[in-house]
Design a protein around this nucleic acid. Structure first.
Lengths: 336, 336
DNA sequence: CTGAAAGCGCTTACAG
DNA sequence: CTGAAAGCGCTTACAG
């Protein structure tokens, strides 16, 4: 059995209160008693129960993080930066991997409530009505990271997805591409689905390029769907000279598809990704990508959540971070 | 403020005991009372405090998982499968990302003790004396996943790393390669450093191939080190016809290096990886790799830990899972 | 500076 | 079937 404070007190010949005092670094404890207590703690291998402390302090130092998919490089990187900021502030992470399963999310949200986590970070936007209600009902601060679900007046830490997609497309246009295909996300997602698609469309329209609808496909952000959708685009017989995929994973899938068709990147077709994940520098040619400041996003999310937990109430607006076009080797100019 | 059991009792006009009974699904509660209680719970949005429950039940339903690096595809995949098994058994995960920082590990181990996690999973083998002592002192079940640190009599869930490396090398030899380079791990690591190196060396010796020491390098399992070490091997001027890297990440780094030197894989040099991470099917050519059953490893780890927690005491031996050579496109035969 | 007592929000014998 | 009371392992006024 783990030693308890009572055991330490007995062992040191002092009261439980005194032990508690040295545990909490209070002054007003005579040095000799303090020494005795520390000795007892050492000898018994005592560690105070965080459970009992939480109960009386009404503070759990726990943050719940809802992750869509732990194995995704994008999410695990955000999670890693959140973790870094969390421990630095004495918070621990309850990781809730929901794997696109909405029931699991509801279950985990419930666990978060029961565990009395002090804050919840949500990294996906497929929120249904039940979840929406739950989030608004509980009085635990909730913050979204990298997404802005529909009808949410809660704070999001995001980039301007519309503008980022617009800029990425614009870059391809400036490179001289006349036909630019698009591998989009889930149109039920505002942030990564709709906004990025709008950015692409408007950039094309503003430059007088016409959309070729058979070059426009929508997937699930994963490698395989990028591959399959590129296959569909190729099968039209008149592929575009560039394709913009709204996730690096899909971009890599598209690249692999081209490779398997013995097409060269970027000579035959240029590929533009989105996210700035580790993959970009790992594939050959290295992937040009519209990057989100992934680690910064996690850090800012945690920082703002900490403020929310501290009760700062004048935080109403979303935090919009800068996107950044990282030019690498997968896009080339079509100009003379 | 969150409602508490007392509020529910008052609201329903029953005793706290009765509320507790319906919360815990006990029979012996009349239907009408049960209905009243459930109504009160609903109306108050009540969720029982896991904290208070843990204190009295002496059960936290928490597992601590020490991960070396969350952003690694290998570890995040194990973590994901651990998570799957954990929730299925009503356990939650406290994720401890230590980022190769030994002090952070000690700190997290302490948090695990204070949080009274019911079990701890450790996924790395750079254990120092202090950590060794800590692990043996606390009476919380500890299990290692994918590694077997030195001098540990605690259970590990692993593959036979020696044999796996032996088999991988043997395969390359059978393909007709006379000179086979080696990009190894950290020699302070028994499992992934020493054992894999021994496997390689013995396979070479058993087939009468001689080792070329300038073709043998040791890195940190990451992409960059694979790249740099391959560079070193190339710089010798007489590269081997095949290279075996003990992580897929390093293998991919090596591939990228070859590509950047305009060398073809596998025509000029064959590359063999190790792990069976997502990367293998993501790069071109697809990477032939000695695979660990990653997800299964996580599942078995969790299953065994659950037994340990349940007090099963006849579990003394390590669990050794099967390795599997996945032949893809990065290795070719040198025979006629 | 130190300690006895109440209380955090639950569950669990014990009695009825 | 139901409830009053004790107790889980701490912290925090309150007194001295």
């Amino acid at each position: 059995m783990q030693a308890k404070i009572k055991d330490v007190a007995k062992h040191a010949g002092v009261s439980v209160t005194t032990v508690s005092r040295v545990l909490n670094g209070e002054k007003y404890v005579k040095d000799d008693l303090k020494a005795k207590v520390n000795k007892a703690i050492e000898e018994l291998g005592y560690a105070p129960s965080h459970i009992a402390r939480s109960l009386v302090r009404k503070k759990t130092n726990l943050i719940g993080v809802i992750v869509p998919d732990l194995t995704s490089s994008f999410y695990s990187t955000i999670l890693s930066s959140i973790e870094e900021r969390a421990t630095a502030n004495d918070y621990n992470l309850l990781v809730c991997n929901i794997n696109e399963d909405i029931d699991k999310e509801l279950k985990y949200l419930n666990v978060c409530q029961e565990m009395r986590v002090e804050g919840i970070i949500i990294m996906h936007e497929k929120i249904n009505e039940q979840i929406r209600q739950f989030i608004h009902k509980i009085d635990i601060p909730v913050i979204f990271s990298s997404v802005k679900p529909m009808d949410q007046n809660l704070i999001s830490v995001i980039i301007d997805d519309y503008q980022a997609a617009y800029d990425a497309t614009k870059y391809l246009i400036e490179l001289g591409h006349e036909t630019i295909g698009f591998i989009g996300g889930d149109m039920r997602d505002i942030t990564s689905g709709q906004n990025r698609y709008s950015g692409y469309r408007n950039a094309m329209a503003d430059s007088g390029k016409k959309l070729v609808f058979e070059h426009i496909r929508f997937g699930d952000y994963k490698v395989k769907s990028g591959y399959d959708l590129m296959e569909e685009i190729l099968s039209t017989g008149n592929p575009p000279t560039a394709v913009f995929a709204v996730s690096d994973d899909m971009a890599v899938g598209a690249m692999n598809c081209l490779r398997d068709h013995h097409l060269n990147i970027p000579e035959d077709i240029s590929i533009m990704g989105f996210d700035g994940s580790q993959l970009t520098e790992l594939v050959r040619p290295m992937l040009t990508s519209m990057e989100q400041p992934i680690r910064q996003m996690g850090e800012v999310t945690m920082d703002v959540l900490l403020k929310l937990i501290a009760g700062e109430t004048d935080l109403a607006d979303d935090i919009v971070l800068e996107h950044n076009l990282a030019m690498r080797d997968s896009c080339m100019s079509k100009m003379e």
